[in-house]
Nucleic acid binder design. Sequence first.
DNA 1: TTGAAAGCGGTACCAG
DNA 2: CTGGTACCGCTTTCAA
Lengths: 323, 323
Amino acid sequence: MSTATVSRALRGLPHVSVETRDTIKRIAAELGYVPSSNASGLARGRTDAFGVLVPSFTEWFGATVLEGVDRELRKANFDLVIYEIGTSAQQRERVFNRSLLRNRTDALLALCIDFTPVEREQLASDDLPAVMIGGSVRGIRGIGIDERATARQATEHLLALGHHDIVHLNGNPEIGLNPLVALGRRKGFEEALTAAGVAVDPRRHVFGDFSLAAARTAMNAVLATSAQRPTAVFASSDEMAIGAILAAWDHGLRVPDDLSVIGIDGHPLGVSFGLTTLAQDPAGQGALAVSTLLNELNGHGRRVRFPRAPTTFISRSTTGPAP
Amino acid sequence: MSTATVSRALRGLPHVSVETRDTIKRIAAELGYVPSSNASGLARGRTDAFGVLVPSFTEWFGATVLEGVDRELRKANFDLVIYEIGTSAQQRERVFNRSLLRNRTDALLALCIDFTPVEREQLASDDLPAVMIGGSVRGIRGIGIDERATARQATEHLLALGHHDIVHLNGNPEIGLNPLVALGRRKGFEEALTAAGVAVDPRRHVFGDFSLAAARTAMNAVLATSAQRPTAVFASSDEMAIGAILAAWDHGLRVPDDLSVIGIDGHPLGVSFGLTTLAQDPAGQGALAVSTLLNELNGHGRRVRFPRAPTTFISRSTTGPAP
DNA sequence: TTGAAAGCGGTACCAG
DNA sequence: CTGGTACCGCTTTCAA
């Protein structure tokens, strides 16, 4: 058998007789033969791998996106190369100067990262197809929910229940993540208020760092010092919403009787707290990004733009009528 | 310039004049040249990448290990290829038959996975250096805490506070993860009880699936039906411990006044609940595995055995004297 | 110090 | 349907 025939047989290409193919496959299995991805990749100019840039492994959104990415990649027999790039510019520079451009991947996914203009330029100039998940950025295609509309919907839910004094527990836009998400959610919150004829009070804009602990601290401060207590909280993430619930408990307040809380995300922990939320589907977003890029790599269609990722209102038990 | 000289210059090898090297580096930078990892890997018989098998992206232990693995890999300019292999044997077979043996990685890390004998054999026969993190398995080197001693220490803490009726909230050993961790923790629990002259009551062995929600449900059942209420809970993981705390709250019980709770892990969420726990350092375990394997790949030393990973007692506010 | 040339392990084109 | 054979882009040995 020539190497050519073996190669064809093993990859399921045509022009190989059935019996030849079977023989080759059997022997390959016996020998435990597996082609070298390096050699194959070199010859084909492909790597059969996607790269993903994540801000952190331990953060829910990114991890859940990876779940979907991996699922879709696995179907296509692609591998997944992950680069964790914290919020430090130094780490990021390393990745950009070396790994990204190292031709180890056929495409790139970035998770809600706040790229610098230089980085965006590098990404664009590089021929690697790239998509950003969790908030789009100029120059790179993005897939994500409609931040503003989602925030508005959450706020409207609270308004409809009669709440007028609502705290917006938001993420700080300056922590290296894509600032557009915090900004967009703020905007949607204010829009809803304004549309309902409720005044926007800047003191009700509180920062919880997108983390449970920080949100709890921030809300504790609000509940401790406010001359007048808010009756509801709109949190830009479920983890912050749970922090708000714990803060309410810290103050002996009942949820939702004394304080209503709504979040965004659909974090699994929300179930345990009966959290009302607007759920998104990070795994679905990741899977969509992969299948689209895979399609484009195969020459089917070019440069699709993504529609807004869907969001689902999940009504549980942390929101109720204003007291 | 010949390709040979360029190759030497760019990789910092000797036998290149300083000025030649500088020129080459400058031009390479201008051109944005980056060597193809495939070609380089093919020529050197190396991939400069590690593979990691994780049960799930969204589970705390694995994600935290990845954090440490990535940190150490990045230092060495290695890339990280991740294979998520749920608990389904089918998915795993895919990985084993294809990816693992695909020569995309120089070494393999597996996170607390319950390999079948066949899989173990494949791993062993393959020349890939491998280490298992979070519970060792026959045939593969492992790095992890001393399950039994840690569980015993946690239980002893409770006993010392005067508790005699202790529930062990354990993980179910049959969910695809390494069963030795649940078994070892059970053993340590019973040892401590026996050493203290306390009878082991099988009805106090409750399964929480290593998850918060399941643990809460399980504990709710205990608290609802027990003729006599336990005064303390030893949970095999912090997430389950938090589930127990929520269950206590569900029943209007105060922690630790009515029920003491201790966990194992050092999960960040524990901080928010004041959880007393025996913390381990998953990132450190991952980093150690990587640096060791890296060393061995470079020919320095061979087949190190790992000492037990350390554990730290963190006393917070969920344990107190028995009522 | 530098360059020439032989692989590394596949793929793909072309001829038989 | 099958085999021969130039590469793919880089590393490495050997000479110059």
